[in-house]
Design a protein around this nucleic acid. Sequence first.
DNA 1: CGTACTAATGTTATGTTATAACATATTTAC
DNA 2: GTAAATATGTTATAACATAACATTAGTACG
Lengths: 166, 166
Amino acid sequence: MAHNTKKNLNLVFPAPGHDHKCCAMAALMKAEVLCRASGKKFTDIRRRVLEVVWESHAPIGAYDILAKLNRGGGRTAPIAVYRTLEFLMENGLVHRIASLNAFVGCAQAGHDHVAGFLICHECGAAAEMDSETLSQALDSELAARGFVVDSQVVELSGTCPHCCAG
Amino acid sequence: MAHNTKKNLNLVFPAPGHDHKCCAMAALMKAEVLCRASGKKFTDIRRRVLEVVWESHAPIGAYDILAKLNRGGGRTAPIAVYRTLEFLMENGLVHRIASLNAFVGCAQAGHDHVAGFLICHECGAAAEMDSETLSQALDSELAARGFVVDSQVVELSGTCPHCCAG
DNA sequence: CGTACTAATGTTATGTTATAACATATTTAC
DNA sequence: GTAAATATGTTATAACATAACATTAGTACG
């Protein structure tokens, strides 16, 4: 079996000087639209957690999210953050990065994809790697050997293009 | 670029009724040999932790290891387990499974490989997947796009052949 | 041998990540 | 408007991991 992965590795690391407000804004609007479409409630805390997650492209820990929510005197509890993250993950708005115990905004919300991640340990940013073809090929190879995959964690750490150049 | 992954996915889930004593024994002997060869000390606690890890093919948490070390009245502290696991990982005798916060014996100690894991959520067993070719291909595709990989976490969960059959 | 050095382990405390259990409030459907 | 479902609040604790420093056990070399 031959396959060319080139066209499928749809990987995008945002440039250092990009207009990040746009990323965040777009993500929030999309979240709102998606929730509305599926009858889910995009409540205040859900919006605020997602805003915090989208403050950068680097995965952020639950307790760091908590601290940001509570900057200025809030009293939100850890469990509230975890519950909210669970909701956001179930609805494809956030991903968990197991190797970092951290969370990152989903760059392709609404696409119902299986994502892998590239994590730059220089700038901290994580990019989704959309390698559906590769992953499907692997899964079917495995299935042929009797192992049926139903979830995956693929997290590659290294240096991103911008930091390589930097 | 074409590549056939078939011959490289060297994946082995031990059968339910296999003689596990042999697995454990072999792993311990190999550890001893490797340590001797590299001038590292295979001390008592290192041996005992590795024994516990090899009690099964299912990844085990650090605190579960601790509990087993202390069954019968020991007073080993958590840090001792973590230090020991660090040593065992540095020396290629144990792997960490990030998605489970758990540790598993290395099935190919001494080979200096980059491993991925298949984890069965029926029986709990984890098998190393030796897909050097696949991984190298992916890494070079990524390098071509400017991302230089230097470590990876690949953990696929699903149902193993024995549990599929069972 | 013995002493200085390094590696390994012990001890105590604490930091970090995540969830359980139950109460209250808000929304939705009828 | 009330019951049911959903969402959030409150308190406590479980589970995972490391920091800082003391002590012990090997090793190297005079």
